[in-house]
């Protein structure tokens, strides 16, 4: 009876590599709560989620490209988030286009269009993803600066509500949930299976008749679309468009995806894993902030915990899968 339970537990860990990351995230959440009792109260959730949303969405927006394989590390997501926030605050709201019914679709369109261009560069023109998105990083950072020379604050608008609450629902929650809704719809089509097949072995997928280029372009477009949502979240959280911090989310977002169990080689991983990975990094930062230590210490601790977290999550999930294999053999 007991071994049965153990086998079931190990088996479920094997199919859900993010489960161990989730355990780490929960421990960090409890630690945060212990360090500062006002961390997560009923009234602090909206602002907590608003702070978390841009980073979580940066990680989520990096995931489809990585799942599509061929070294799909998209380093243009950080600057894209920034560009979208600059467009929304500096170009739309500042010039009087204050209707969310125009601003939100515009932001999503900018994100998806940039992602689609990246996808064509990688999928059709056969550029390496790192090179294509590195050029994207330069072009998008330049474009952000060209549109808006200095950070601009947003006036009172729908963005203020999105940064707090939309009706009874925290705005951050809506933003974070929207990519998952898209993903749920896609799960009812053949697309996700094709995406994982292409990421796992592109040559085999091509031989099996999968249109690899189309799958990749869609993956990069989805990433861009999610980055568009992330840009809205960034504008909502800061209420400014800031062209100067274009690359701040790039590297932590990729780290979050890796911690969440998505393979950097492609074909394995999930959006949920990236969300949990992002939560881990975010909670490490808030924990260090609440401990109120010497202001020069946080980066040191952050780096150390980052390494410990990735080692722990990789080692534990390997041990679990090895043990689960052992159980299957024994049975």
């Amino acid at each position: 009876m007991r071994t049965d339970l153990r086998a079931r537990l190990l088996g479920s860990l094997q199919t859900r590599p993010w489960a161990l990351a989730l355990v780490i995230a929960v421990i960090l959440f409890v630690a945060n709560q212990l360090a500062r009792s006002s961390f997560a109260t009923w009234s602090s959730w909206p602002s907590l989620l608003a702070d978390f949303a841009p980073f979580a969405l940066a990680a989520i927006a990096t995931t489809p490209q990585m799942l599509s394989g061929a070294g799909g590390i998209d380093i243009s997501i950080g600057p894209l988030l920034n560009l979208v926030s600059v467009v929304v605050v500096g170009e739309l709201i500042a010039r009087g286009t204050t209707s969310p019914w125009i601003d939100v679709p515009a932001a999503l369109a900018v994100g998806a269009a940039v992602g689609c261009v990246n996808g064509i560069l990688v999928g059709v023109l056969r550029y390496q993803a790192v090179l294509a998105t590195l050029c994207g990083l330069f072009v998008l950072s330049g474009l952000g600066q060209a549109l808006l020379a200095t950070p601009a604050a947003s006036s009172q608008s729908w963005l203020t509500h999105l940064g707090a609450q939309v009706g009874p629902v925290p705005g951050g929650l809506i933003l974070i949930a929207s990519p998952f809704l898209v993903w749920l719809v896609l799960a009812r089509t053949a697309y996700l299976d094709q995406l994982y097949a292409v990421g796992g072995d592109e040559v085999a997928a091509y031989s099996a008749g999968v249109d690899v280029a189309r799958v990749r372009i869609t993956a990069y477009t989805l990433g861009g679309l999610f980055a568009g949502v992330g840009g809205l979240a960034l504008a909502a959280a800061t209420q400014t468009g800031d062209p100067t911090e274009a690359t701040q989310y790039t590297l932590p977002a990729i780290a979050a995806v890796a911690i969440g169990g998505t393979s950097l080689v492609g074909g394995r991983g999930s959006l949920l894993g990236s969300l949990i990975g992002a939560a881990i990094i975010f909670l490490i930062q808030t924990l260090i902030d609440s401990l109120n230590v010497n202001s020069n210490v946080p980066q040191l601790i952050y780096g150390a915990i980052l390494i410990v977290a990735i080692v722990l999550s990789a080692t534990l999930s390997r041990t679990a899968s090895r043990a689960a294999e052992g159980e299957t053999v024994a049975a």
């Binding site: 990729i254 780290a255 950097l264 040191l300 952050y302 780096g303 390494i307 990735i310």
Partner: peptide
């Protein structure tokens, strides 16, 4: 990628 990112922060 993650290890060197962590090392970078620590340094």
């Amino acid at each position: 990628l993650v290890v060197t990112l962590g090392m970078s922060s620590m340094i």
